[in-house]
């Protein structure tokens, strides 16, 4: 069928190291650049990937070298989709305090989820918080 329009896919397992995922993030950003995604959109994807993968490594797998982070990603000219799963014990995302409320402004941490939600079109937590699936649809400028 239309192989030219088939989404580019990446599937991999990353070690639980906070320095081990930047090449993958760059690879995804390079692929989206080739698909003509613009700088502002790439910034948002970069932010969402940085926060979600580092959360999975730091809070999910607790940097345990015996655990990996599973990544599955699909990219096309108008859609970015990724699922990130850790091997930790899971958590309840709704229990994370709202980092942006006035009383929590000075609390370090907890801002990653707010950034992910702001930059992605949709975000879904599953398997007790062990998996995060997010999608960004490229915004189409209004015609005329």
């Amino acid at each position: 069928m239309s192989t030219n329009n088939a989404p580019k896919t990446i599937q991999c397992a990353l070690p639980s190291s906070l320095t081990a995922y930047h090449d993958l993030v760059q690879q995804i950003l390079d692929s989206l650049t080739k698909l003509e995604w613009q700088a502002g959109e790439l910034f948002g994807v970069h932010m969402a990937l940085e926060e979600s993968i580092s959360n999975a490594i730091r809070h999910g797998n607790k940097e345990d070298p015996a655990k990996v982070v599973h990544i599955e990603c699909q990219m096309s000219a108008d859609r970015f989709w990724v699922r990130i799963c850790d091997e930790g014990e899971g958590y309840d995302p709704s229990a994370v305090p709202d980092c942006c409320s006035p009383e929590n402004l000075e609390v370090p941490g907890g801002r990653g989820l707010a950034l992910i939600s702001a930059y992605m079109s949709s975000v879904e937590h599953s398997i007790c918080g062990k998996c995060l699936t997010m999608e960004k649809l490229k915004t189409v400028p209004p015609a005329g």
Binding site: H46, E51, S54, E106, V107, P108, G109, R111, L115
Partner: peptide
């Protein structure tokens, strides 16, 4: 050009 929420956390601590 880019900073993570971990960097923001450090800036918040510095502000305090």
């Amino acid at each position: 050009e880019f900073l993570s929420s971990a960097a923001l956390g450090k800036l918040i601590t510095f502000e305090k």
